[in-house]
Amino acid sequence: MTFVLKRCAAFVVALIVQSAAIFVCLRILPGDLAMVVGGTSSTPEQVARIRQQLGLDQPYPVQYWNWLSGILHGDLGTAQLSGASVAGEIADRLQVTLPLALMGLAVALAIGLPLGVLSVTSRSARVRRGLQIAAIVAGSIPALWGGLLLIMLLGRGVGLLGVLPSQGFPVRGWHAFGRALSSLALPALSVGIIAGAEFMRYTRSALLEVRDSDYLAQAMACGMTRAQAVRTVGLRLAAPQIVSVAGLTFAGMLTGVIVVENLFALPGLATLLMDDLGNRDLLAVQSELLVLTAFFLFMGLVVDLVHHALDPRLKAAASGGADGADGVADGTDGARKEGTR
């Protein structure tokens, strides 16, 4: 419980620090929102009146406190150019970005986890070497180039096979479930293949660390092959590292799909952020950046808590006990039962 409270306190402190950094950095940028709202034909008096209405004439500490207090009351502000609620716009755009990140993570796991295991358990040196080279090549492909290759191969109307839509998202959203799902397939593959290559390398590295451990040796002594021991006991031992990578990969996808959303013309959160930034609507941008930052920090908090729950060594360090190996020993107990069948 102490560990959880400390991590939650660190999350709150980090979020406050990040909010201050976002506020300061956006105020350094050139441009005047009041002039953008007023238009090129507005007089200096009109610009001054708009600046007063938006609260931009107040000192920076007052502006920051007004923004932060509004967030604490659930008000993320209003987009000045569209007049829409920032919270509402973020919620609408998350209906695209969040499923895209989830689908990309599913693709990454489907590729990275089995191939990572195969790169350790395969008896063929050529297969192991080939998987290592494939992971390096796929992981080094830029998302833009990878997306273009997938469009040329699978994009409907322009690709060789032409089986999946390559542009846009249904106006009805997820009410047209089939069309919405298919419109996210190519973008999810674009980010998932690249992330899957990285995930395969992390999985391979984690399994190599535990391959020669006493727990796997005990599992093989119970009748299991090395490949079986790696797939059962080894994956259990490497689970904390794999979960950590999966959580941070998901957070990175949600905050890093700007290129993919623009390439496939998806109305996601990254596109909204870039549009507002280009229109100098900094009052909306600061809230959108804070939401992305809060999500990234929250995923880090979740990863830490799950890692702490899965890793018996961290539990033992926190409790000061000597029972840290009990959770790992459960994996060898399961291996013993498997070997005696």
Rank of each mutant, 00 (worst) to 15 (best):
Leu5Ile: 14
Ala9Asn: 06
Phe11Glu: 11
Val12Asn: 09
Val13Glu: 11
Ile16Arg: 08
Gln18Met: 15
Gln18Phe: 05
Ser19Gln: 03
Ser19Asp: 08
Ala21Glu: 09
Phe23Val: 02
Phe23Gln: 04
Arg27Ser: 10
Leu29Gly: 15
Ala34His: 09
Ser41His: 15
Ser41Met: 14
Ser42Gly: 05
Thr43Cys: 12
Pro44His: 10
Glu45Ala: 15
Glu45Gln: 13
Ala48Cys: 09
Arg49Val: 13
Gln52Ser: 15
Asp57Cys: 12
Gln58Arg: 13
Val62Arg: 15
Val62Lys: 14
Thr78Val: 13
Gln80Phe: 11
Leu81Ile: 13
Ser82Trp: 06
Asp92Glu: 12
Leu94His: 03
Val96Glu: 02
Thr97Lys: 11
Pro99Ala: 04
Pro99Arg: 05
Leu102Lys: 04
Met103His: 09
Met103Val: 09
Leu105Gly: 07
Ala108Trp: 09
Leu109Pro: 00
Ala110Met: 15
Leu113Asn: 08
Ser119Val: 07
Val120Lys: 00
Ser124Tyr: 09
Arg126Pro: 00
Val127Leu: 12
Arg128Ala: 10
Gly130His: 06
Gly130Asn: 08
Gln132Pro: 02
Ile133Asn: 10
Ala134Gly: 05
Ala135Asp: 01
Ala135Tyr: 00
Ile136Leu: 15
Ile136Thr: 12
Ile141Thr: 14
Ile141Ala: 11
Ala143Met: 08
Ala143Ile: 14
Gly147Trp: 00
Leu148Arg: 11
Leu148Asn: 11
Leu150Thr: 00
Met152Thr: 10
Leu153Cys: 04
Gly155Glu: 10
Gly159Met: 09
Gly159Asp: 07
Leu160Val: 14
Leu161Ile: 08
Gln167Pro: 06
Arg172Cys: 13
Trp174Phe: 08
His175Phe: 14
Leu186Arg: 07
Pro187Ser: 09
Pro187Ile: 12
Ala188Ile: 01
Gly192Val: 03
Ile193Met: 10
Ile194Trp: 01
Gly196Met: 08
Thr203His: 02
Ser205His: 04
Glu209Trp: 03
Val210Lys: 04
Asp212Cys: 07
Ser213His: 02
Asp214Ala: 13
Tyr215Met: 03
Ala217Tyr: 02
Gln218Gly: 10
Ala221Trp: 03
Gly223Asp: 05
Met224Tyr: 00
Ala227Met: 02
Val230Thr: 07
Arg231Asp: 04
Arg231Lys: 13
Gly234Gln: 01
Leu235Trp: 00
Arg236Phe: 03
Leu237Val: 01
Pro240Gly: 01
Ile242Thr: 04
Val243Ile: 11
Ala246Thr: 11
Gly247Phe: 05
Thr249Asn: 01
Phe250Val: 11
Leu254Thr: 02
Leu254Tyr: 10
Val257His: 02
Val257Trp: 00
Leu263His: 04
Leu263Asp: 06
Phe264Ile: 13
Ala265Gln: 12
Gly268Val: 05
Thr271Cys: 12
Met274Tyr: 10
Arg280Met: 12
Leu282Gly: 00
Ser287Met: 05
Glu288Met: 15
Glu288Phe: 06
Thr293Met: 15
Phe295Trp: 07
Leu297Arg: 03
Met299Asn: 04
Val302Asn: 07
Val302Trp: 05
Asp304Phe: 11
His308Phe: 13
Ala309Glu: 10
Asp311Arg: 09
Leu314Pro: 05
Leu314Glu: 02
Ala318Lys: 09
Gly320Asp: 03
Gly321Trp: 04
Gly324Val: 03
Gly331Val: 01
Thr332Met: 05
Arg336Ser: 14
